[in-house]
């Protein structure tokens, strides 16, 4: 139980914060921290636990965002149905990519995932009849829980908190279950794992599909929350890098790491945006310079990120490899 205390504290604080603080700017940041945290954790299922590093996860994020937005604007469905459709499409796409991963290792897989997200970016920009192209789709605000038209940001915090906890539990499952151990074996030495009868391909495909589905749910909720979807943002390489960056800084292959990383990345980003919005807009890039340096340093000195680094200092059990 002790090893889960930091995570329980993290989620309890996030869940209780809206009861105490009513400041809209703070609650907005909290919603984004939890969405990006859940997305980074979803990336971590594939990139950390399964060892399939992707820099094209924005493909799934964008598929979810568009599915939810189109469900509302074009097909007259509830955004909740749209979220399920998006998750389904993303899971299927993830399975296809997962099968590719059997033939493409390391950098090849990374390039293939970037190419996938770019194909979807161009398709979404050009299929004007379906997606309105580069103009993007504004998501109309219809009050009600079923239509996700919620003005109260505290409710949003709780909705994305449920998602964040779900993804966290999937990661804990991968740390404790037989399948999780098998997946770790495949990540460390696929040939050895296969020779012991581990169904390597099935596990990798499943991990990437689950990762893709959760990323799509994050994208869908993000689109409903922000109220606008445009292809250049939701399918960008920048977002894919953001997921990987948050995981790496917090601790890749650890359950709490991505949430910590996302909290750091998002806090600094929103603070700088508030500082430099408008005229000095280019200075928002300073936080990414810092994170670029942080990434290089972390890979070299603390490959298991903040969680691993703190764990080593305190000798906690959670620092041990999953």
């Amino acid at each position: 139980m002790k090893r889960y205390l930091p995570a329980i504290a993290y989620f309890v604080v996030a869940g209780l914060a809206p009861l105490v603080v009513k400041d809209a700017f703070f609650l907005d940041a909290l919603v984004l921290i939890l969405i990006w945290g859940a997305a980074a954790a979803a990336w971590n299922i594939a990139g950390g636990y399964a060892g399939q590093v992707s820099l094209g996860h924005s493909a799934f994020f964008g598929l979810g965002a568009y599915a939810a937005a189109l469900a509302v604007t074009r097909w007259g469905l509830s955004p909740w149905t749209g979220i399920l459709i998006g998750a389904g499409i993303a899971a299927f796409t993830g399975m296809v990519i997962g099968f590719l991963s059997n033939r493409l290792k390391g950098p090849y897989f990374v390039i293939a995932t970037i190419a996938l997200s770019q194909v979807l970016l161009i398709a979404a920009s050009r299929l004007k009849g379906l997606t309105s192209g580069s103009e993007g789709i504004p998501v109309p605000f219809r009050p009600g829980f079923w239509t996700l038209g919620i003005a109260d940001k505290s409710v949003w915090v709780w909705i994305v908190l449920v998602l964040a906890i779900l993804v966290y539990l999937v990661q804990v499952y991968l740390e404790r279950s037989r399948r999780g151990f098998q997946l770790a074996a495949v990540r460390e030495d696929e040939d050895a794992a296969r020779s012991l009868g581990v169904p390597a391909l099935h596990l990798k495909v499943a991990a990437i599909a689950v990762s893709a589905a959760f990323t799509a749910v994050c994208g869908a909720l993000w689109a409903q929350y922000i109220g606008f979807v445009d292809p250049a943002y939701v399918f960008s390489v920048d977002i894919s890098i953001k997921f990987a960056l948050a995981s790496m800084i917090g601790g890749v292959g650890t359950a709490l790491g991505p949430f910590l990383g996302a909290a750091l990345v998002t806090t600094l980003e929103t603070t700088l945006r508030a500082q430099f919005g408008g005229v000095g807009a280019q200075f928002i890039g300073t936080y990414l310079i810092l994170y670029g340096i942080a990434l290089i340093v972390i890979v070299r000195y603390a490959p298991r990120g903040l969680v691993g680094w703190i764990g080593e200092r305190w000798g906690r059990r959670e620092a041990k490899p999953a």
């Binding site: 590093v53 950098p107 890098i241 890039g285 990414l288 310079i289 670029g292 290089i296 890979v299 070299r300």
Partner: peptide
């Protein structure tokens, strides 16, 4: 180091240079 470490190192370098140019 591993392939993944190299991927992240060059990605980190890419983020650094791109945003230095932006600033």
């Amino acid at each position: 180091a591993s392939h993944n470490a190299q991927v992240f190192t060059t990605v980190g370098l890419s983020i650094l240079l791109q945003n230095a140019a932006l600033v």
